[in-house]
Amino acid sequence: MIKTAKALIELCREKDWKISDYVLEEESRGDEEKKAAILKELHHMLDIMKESTSRTLESGTNLNHDLIKDFGKKTWEYSKSGKKFVTDEKTLRAMARAFSTFESNAKMDVIVAAPTAGSCGIVPAALVTAAEDIDASDDELVEALLTSIGIGQFIAGYGTFAGSEGGCQAECGAASSMAAAALAQLYGGDVETCLNAASIAIVNILGLVCDPLGGLVQYPCTFRNASGVSNARVSADMALAGTYSIIPFDEVCKAMKEVGDAMPASLRETGIGGLAGTDTAKTLCGKIFGK
């Protein structure tokens, strides 16, 4: 497997490949039967993503506590209200879909951890909203998903996807980076554009701590899924516009690992510091856990 983004760019230029082409070839080792099996599984994952992004938009969550409750439904209804928005309808719908997928996880429904359950809403919401926007086919979405997988492999190679090791930057940051690269490819970007989008997304979220209330992967994680897909969309557009990260993708990933290692334990999914350590959080956790 290629170890650096520089080598990936060179290989893709030589072969006239997208990142998705490289990932599929690498994972299948050129075996056509295995390639077909991988694509079949990815189509299955895409179907789950589509379902999870819409699951709570109309019905709400019916969860028994108030850490997160009907955020997907509220945002979806707002996106269709006809009001003047601070952002735009497409971004609101992407955020609603990220909420829906995350709420599905909270309800113990089936989701795709992309790359983790705590960041599960970002990649699906990005892909489904893009499909609605540009009428992308399922085959094109699967190609974009392969690109996100390739970006994730680099991030994991340099660091971690675990919030307990690297903070939320390792979960929602990684997912946002993966989604940004996938979007850049879907909207016509070349390999370097995809890598710039991935880099920008990490730069925008570098240092994000993991501070869930009561150790539950719900709050503030739900907002970070919605903001994460927004970050992915913004980062992809920045890269497609021609802006770029002056720090190469490999070094950005290394920096994320170093920042994660430097975080105190209280800010790495222990439920002790940050928002989890506030008076309101402690009161809410007392009600939830009966303490």
Rank of each mutant, 00 (worst) to 15 (best):
I200R: 01
I200C: 05
I200P: 01
A201Q: 02
I202S: 06
V203R: 14
V203L: 14
V203Y: 14
V203G: 07
V203T: 05
N204K: 07
I205H: 13
I205A: 09
L206W: 00
V209K: 05
C210A: 09
C210R: 04
D211H: 04
P212T: 09
P212D: 13
L213S: 07
L213T: 11
G214I: 08
G215Q: 06
V217M: 10
V217Y: 12
Q218M: 12
Q218G: 00
Y219C: 10
Y219V: 14
P220F: 03
C221S: 15
C221Y: 05
T222P: 06
T222Q: 08
F223M: 15
R224H: 10
A226K: 10
A226S: 06
A226G: 04
S227R: 12
S227I: 14
G228I: 02
G228N: 04
G228T: 06
G228L: 03
G228E: 01
G228Y: 12
V229F: 01
V229I: 01
V229S: 01
V229L: 04
S230H: 13
S230T: 14
N231H: 00
A232R: 14
A232V: 10
V234A: 13
V234Y: 11
V234T: 15
S235L: 07
A236N: 13
D237T: 11
D237M: 15
D237I: 10
D237N: 15
M238P: 00
A239V: 11
A239P: 00
A241H: 03
A241F: 05
G242I: 04
T243K: 11
T243A: 07
T243F: 15
Y244F: 14
S245R: 00
S245W: 09
I246M: 12
I246H: 15
I246K: 12
I247M: 14
P248F: 02
F249R: 08
D250H: 09
D250V: 15
C253F: 06
C253R: 02
C253V: 03
C253S: 02
K254T: 05
K254F: 09
K254C: 06
K257F: 13
E258L: 10
D261P: 03
M263C: 08
M263L: 14
M263F: 12
A265C: 10
S266W: 03
R268F: 06
R268L: 06
R268E: 06
E269H: 04
T270N: 11
G271V: 02
G271Q: 01
G271P: 07
I272Q: 02
I272S: 07
G273F: 03
G273H: 00
G273N: 02
G273S: 06
G274D: 03
A276N: 04
A276S: 13
G277R: 04
T280G: 00
A281R: 10
A281T: 14
K282S: 08
K282M: 08
T283W: 12
T283E: 15
T283G: 11
L284H: 09
G286L: 04
K287C: 12
I288G: 02
I288C: 01
